[in-house]
């Protein structure tokens, strides 16, 4: 087990280098990074050249990358062009996005699994068909449509929520945005739980549990559900990373100043340091989430061994 974890951590290194290099190159291709620094006007060539020298932008790309990575390892993610430290931006953005993600994951687990169990145990009944249809709609409609629609209806028309989230981004403000963020995954969790449950329902060990004279509730929860949720947990685990990165659209709609918002601003202003820094951290979160899921998998299913 220990060796497995070490091997997995070592495997992260090339993935990490590859991912950051790719982002670094892509951001470089985006355009001239000093173009936006002189206000509305174009920088005069002399100033531009001086700025470039100052930021080390006259050096070849690979040198820039090495310098940047060297700094990252000392905890220096550089300075955004507005003078703020990127780490400072992260310090304000990440807590907000983490809160949003937690709200989304909780909704996904509670609602998704509950609906999945409900439909899985009542296959072919009206509840099942209804929920299935609903998940199909949610999956096929893009998040920005669901988001804007909910904002318009709940926020503007009916006034149940504030249409935009305040700077504090408290948990109760994030419930509707969290629902929007989670919606597609929630629909998948519902379907996955339903299918997995229906598949395991006819399993021999469930028949044994019934033959043992266990109460129905115990048969379902302890025997059927315990086995059926293994693939669901895997899905939710990998979704953590995806949700954090995927919050861009949701954060834009509800004006939440989180990671997605900062990334959007960074790209818009061709702010290399911000974009690369944030994405680097997201890559790390994603890798860590994946490792955790794989380890959790072995805990849930004793048949799986890592060596």
């Amino acid at each position: 087990m220990g060796r497995y974890v070490i091997r997995r951590l070592l495997q992260m290194i090339p993935v990490f280098i590859g991912a950051t290099l790719l982002i670094f190159l892509m951001v470089n291709v985006m355009g001239d990074p000093v173009a936006g620094l002189c206000g509305e006007r174009q920088c005069d060539p002399a100033t531009a050249a001086q700025l470039k020298r100052e930021f080390g932008l006259d050096k070849p790309v690979w040198r820039q990358y090495l310098t940047y990575m060297g700094n990252v390892f000392t905890g220096d993610f550089g300075t955004a062009f507005n003078g703020q430290k990127v780490t400072e931006l992260m310090g304000t953005a990440f807590p907000v996005t983490i809160r949003l993600t937690v709200v989304a994951i909780v909704l996904e687990i509670v609602l998704g699994i509950a609906l999945g169990v409900l439909t899985g145990l009542r296959r072919g009944r009206p509840v099942d068909t209804g929920v299935l249809l609903l998940t199909l709609v949610v999956i096929s409609v893009p998040t920005f449509v669901t988001g804007l629609l909910l904002q318009l209806l709940l926020g503007v028309e009916w006034g149940w929520i504030k249409p935009s989230v305040s700077a504090y981004a408290t948990v109760d403000e994030l419930i509707v945005p969290g629902l929007v963020l989670a919606s597609v995954s929630l629909a998948y969790v519902t379907r996955l739980t339903r299918t997995s449950l229906a598949e395991n329902r006819r399993a021999d060990y469930v028949r044994t549990a019934i033959a043992k004279g266990l109460p129905r509730r115990r048969v379902v929860v302890r025997h059927l559900l315990r086995n059926s949720l293994i693939p669901v947990v895997t899905f939710i685990g990998t979704d953590v990373g995806a949700l954090m990165g995927g919050a861009i659209v949701t954060e834009r709609i509800f004006n939440i100043h989180g990671v997605g918002y900062q990334l959007y601003q960074g790209i818009l202003r061709q702010n290399t340091q911000t974009v690369v820094g944030f994405v680097t951290v997201l890559v790390l979160v994603f890798l860590a989430a994946n490792l955790l899921v794989d380890l959790l998998y072995a805990v849930l299913d004793p048949r799986i061994r890592y060596a």
Binding site: Y205, A211, N227
Partner: peptide, 18 residues
């Protein structure tokens, strides 16, 4: 289970794997 019990053919699939 208490008064009337059953033994199944394939114990591997009849026992809960987890």
């Amino acid at each position: 289970g208490a008064e009337l019990a059953m033994i199944f053919q394939d114990a591997l699939s009849a026992l809960n794997p987890v």
